[in-house]
Nucleic acid binder design. Structure first.
Length: 847
RNA sequence: GGGCGCGUAGCUCAGCGGGAGAGCGCUCGCUUCACACGCGAGAGGUCGCAGGUUCGAACCCUGCCGCGCCCACCA
């Protein structure tokens, strides 16, 4: 460590890499796979995308998890933070494809095997980046046990789960309506779809009756899909159409005759009351079609272009086809109305393209048997969600869960363990015996493998020592947006395959928004790179800042909070310097017995006990913001502003040295989970420490050191000094000027020396006319200031004081005169109010 | 359309039934022998609006206004 007497602040850039290395070498981050999960503490990190870069959410979540991990490790628990990355199917494939296009190549040009090999290369080159970025934060993950959702063991777990679920019929293949993403050319799940507000045109189109006896007018925003219409539907109770049900109409442009059917889904008060039914291209129509056994036609292909069914429109894009269809209808005089129509439309979360609902042959997973146990686990408290309000979102979603489309038409991911040969289908851990088997081309939705994360990372399906030691994990800390995508699915899979919940607590952390309140996003240009912030302010500062921001709600990124953290690190550094440069060498490692300690020593120890206790409780209650501020307040307020100042008048003997060192060591240990680097650095220079702080014990709370008497006395001293300083400042007394004083307060009697020194007063100099009498706890202090005081300012100050006191007295009197208050409020409160009134009157009299 | 949350000092946020708080910013003062990335002292708020409950409301209830997020199959 650099020379303490010269360095005036902690230098993160030179200290952090060195300290991180020491931590890594120590092996402290690696927990032996011994003991049981009940004894041990473990967290599985939400695996970041392997191609990703650290964003603010990661930084916040990393800070939160590291506080928990470091705290429990210091508590002496065998603690493991399971690390790894996610192969992130679509995101990664897109990124590599983009690179290929830049090179003038393409996925198709390369072919599947070469492409996948190319992605692995990419992963080898860039996959370590985000892990290194986590390390910059000081995250104490087990870097030696890093897992990847596509590594060999993991793949085995995925296959096992797939095969088991297939065997029991929960996984099946079906022609079904899916969200087709023309951007990634793949089906995606409901959760990957986002609704956006769009203004389309609502067209009213006349469908002539087949017998020539009139027409039915339907309303649609997608006229091009009429080419695949197979019915027109009306509400059975709609009298306007009562005679029509069962009759046939002609779908214009196609000449196809379809039936008018009755279905409750159709609203009578919307549009024209008649609905064209396109089972092939609309999710609702699909449901209606299945209910009525309608034919499912396809006019739009997976390439987003019209199929042969579209006749003259075949080959056009959907948008082009819409225009042409409308023109053709207009030409035939069948277009009855067009009006602008704002509504919400599904878009792909990944590619940003408009979803094309299509019927397609996909693999699905039934959720109706997996969901109820996962609901129960939260209801009966085996999984606790914090904050509690999120639990309802979780259960609501699970209660309305629908089949999950798990196949993706991608190349990067877990290829389904399914083989076909003619009409035969084989599902198993490996390729079947015999010739001619062809493996399914599709891969699994990335979230399918992520759902196994807490146990697949520990060697499941084998009963490994790691499984025994760390499963179930303790806490899962994550952002709100993946409560369904990931958390709920982990609970379901965990219960189904291990028989146990994957974690006992879910902490849903806030979202950090951009300073202007918008979403932090790269595309909006609103992102702030945590690594830049670490470079500028240090990892401790960023951690503290993020934790301080992380109250229960969403919050705008506040650079000030980070700077507050930076200031805390500097403050702690300088306070430590003060202690370390002044203590006597060879001071005892033990705290002196309370009987031989001065009142301020007993006070700071007492306060320290309380803050240690509180900090631990707040960490365990996931109240990180309160914990961080509590720590800050203690260090700045009680420790530096008061205790160290009080101590300055004293000789640094062995006892004081021992006390100072004890207080320093305890403070460093307590602060370590929040600001690990600076505390580790200082720990190294502090006598009486051994080894790394990261491996040291969390401070023992010792009730015997609680000292209400000392707390009351020092409270009085602080109160008096504050009053005196305030008076000095408003009376414009030069800060360095020592004034004469006479203390008249029994409460301050034993501690008069401290009061005098901190307020720059001197009892021997008390002579001449009394300039002011300052009310202090327990009495007054008279001051003789001679001409050192600005009399006018002093008089103004006194008048102002009197005015304020009179106001407060009036208020207290009013309150006590209110019979409702004296008779109904708790007696101790009324008593306190009476005492207060008396005290205020005394103070006024003293003035 | 439903659900959740938020509107408190110039800014970002705590507080959630008994005398309005923090950080930053602002003003005044201070080279006080750890720290000027510091220290001390201040200014600044009808706690979104309107009702209600209560002896007492920023805090509980109702309504309204504004903002955000999530869920949802009216073409």
């Amino acid at each position: 460590m650099a020379n303490l007497s010269e360095q005036k602040r902690f230098e993160p850039s030179q200290a952090e890499p060195r300290i991180m290395e020491a931590w890594l070498e120590s092996g402290l981050f690696h927990a032996p796979a011994s003991g049981t999960a009940a004894q041990n503490y473990s967290i599985a990190i939400p695996p970041p995308n392997v191609t990703g870069a650290l964003h603010m959410g990661h930084a916040l979540n990393g800070s939160i998890q590291d506080v928990l991990i470091r705290y429990h490790r210091m508590r002496g628990t065998n603690t493991e933070w399971i690390l790894g990355t996610d192969h992130a199917g679509i995101a990664t494939q897109t990124q590599v494809e983009k690179r290929l296009v830049e090179e003038g190549s393409s996925r198709e040009g390369l072919g599947r095997d070469a492409f996948v090999e190319r992605v692995w290369e990419w992963r080898r080159e860039y996959g370590g980046t985000i892990i290194e970025q986590f390390a910059r934060l000081g995250a104490s993950c087990d870097y030696g046990r890093e897992r990847f959702t596509l590594d060999e063991g993991y793949e085995r777990a995925v296959r096992q789960v797939f095969c088991d679920l297939y065997a029991e019929g929960a996984i099946y293949r079906d022609n079904y309506m899916v969200n087709w993403d023309p951007g990634s050319r793949s089906a995606i799940s409901d959760l990957e779809v986002e609704e956006r507000e769009v203004t389309d045109t609502l067209y009213s189109i006349a469908y002539p009756l087949a017998d020539g006896d009139g027409e039915v007018v339907v309303a649609t925003v997608r006229p091009e899909t009429m080419l695949a219409d197979t019915a027109v539907a009306v509400n059975p109770s709609d009298e306007r159409f009562s005679g029509l049900v069962g009759r046939r109409v002609i779908v214009p442009l196609t000449g196809r005759e379809v039936e008018v059917i009755a279905d409750d889904y159709v609203k009578t008060d919307f549009g024209t009351g008649a609905l064209k039914i396109t089972p092939g291209h609309d999710p609702n129509d699909f449901e209606i079609g299945r209910r009525h056994g309608l034919e499912e036609l396809t006019a739009i292909g997976e390439d987003g272009r019209m199929t042969e069914l579209a006749g003259e429109f075949a080959g056009l894009t959907v948008a082009e086809a819409q225009g042409e269809v409308v023109e053709a209808l207009r030409a035939q005089g069948l277009l009855r109305a067009e009006e602008p129509y704002p509504h919400t439309v599904p878009f792909s979360h990944r590619s940003g393209e408009r979803i094309e609902p299509l019927i397609s042959l996909q693999w699905f997973m039934r959720m109706d048997e997996l969901a109820p146990p996962a609901i129960d686990a939260v209801r009966d408290g085996r999984v606790r969600i914090h904050p509690e309000s999120q639990a309802r979102r979780y259960t609501d979603w699970l209660e309305n869960i629908r089949p999950w489309c798990i196949s993706r038409q991608l190349w990067w991911g877990h290829r389904l363990p399914v083989w076909y040969r003619g009409e035969e289908t084989w599902v198993g851990m490996g390729e079947p015996e015999g010739e001619g088997w062809v493996q399914e081309e599709d891969v699994l939705d990335t979230w399918f493998s992520s759902a196994l994360w807490p146990f697949a990372t520990l060697g499941w399906p084998d009963q490994t020592p790691e499984m025994k030691a760390f499963y179930p994990t303790d806490v899962l800390s994550t952002a709100r947006d993946i409560l369904f995508l990931w958390v709920a699915r982990m609970v379901m899979m965990g219960l189904r395959f291990t028989g146990d919940v994957p974690f006992s607590d879910v902490y849903v952390h806030p979202v950090i928004q951009a300073p202007d309140g918008r979403r932090m996003s790269k595309s909006l240009g609103t992102g702030i790179d945590p690594i830049d912030e670490i470079d500028a302010h240090g990892a401790d500062a960023v951690r503290f800042g993020l934790l301080a921001m992380a109250s229960t709600q969403d919050v705008r990124y506040s650079r000030e909070r980070v700077e507050q953290g930076e200031a805390l690190a500097t403050k702690l550094f300088n306070a430590s310097r003060f202690v370390l440069l002044n203590v006597k060498s060879g001071a005892p490692a033990e705290l002196p017995p309370a009987e031989s300690m001065s009142v301020e020593d007993r006070w700071i120890c007492s306060r320290l006990q309380r803050v240690v206790q509180e900090t631990g409780e707040r960490i365990e209650a996931f109240e990180f913001s309160r914990a961080a501020f509590g720590l800050y307040d203690f260090v700045y307020g009680e420790l530096c502003d008061w205790y160290l100042e009080m101590v300055k008048g004293r000789e640094f003997d062995r006892e004081l040295s021992a006390t100072l060192l004890h207080v320093l060591r305890t403070t460093l240990a307590m602060a370590h989970p929040f600001i690990p680097f600076v505390t580790e650095e200082l720990w190294d220079s502090t006598p009486g420490t051994e080894g790394l702080l990261a491996g040291a014990a969390w401070p023992q709370v010792d009730d015997a050191r609680l000292d209400p008497e000392a707390e009351e006395r020092i409270e009085a001293v602080i109160g008096a000094v504050t009053e005196l300083r305030s008076w000095r400042s408003s009376a414009k007394v030069a800060p360095s000027k020592v004034l004469g004083a006479k203390i008249d307060s029994p409460r301050l009697d034993s501690d008069r020396g401290m009061v005098l020194r901190l307020a720059r007063l001197d009892e021997d100099g008390f002579e001449g006319e009394v300039t002011a009498a300052i009310p202090v706890p327990g009495g007054t202090i008279e001051i003789t200031a001679g001409d050192a005081v600005d009399l006018e300012a002093q008089e103004r100050e006194m008048t102002e004081r009197r005015r304020r006191l009179e106001g407060e007295i009036a208020r207290a009197e009013g309150k006590l005169a209110n019979e409702g208050f004296t008779s109904k409020a708790p007696p101790e409160l009324v008593g306190a109010e009476r005492e207060k009134l008396e005290r205020l009157r005394d103070e006024l009299a003293a003035l």
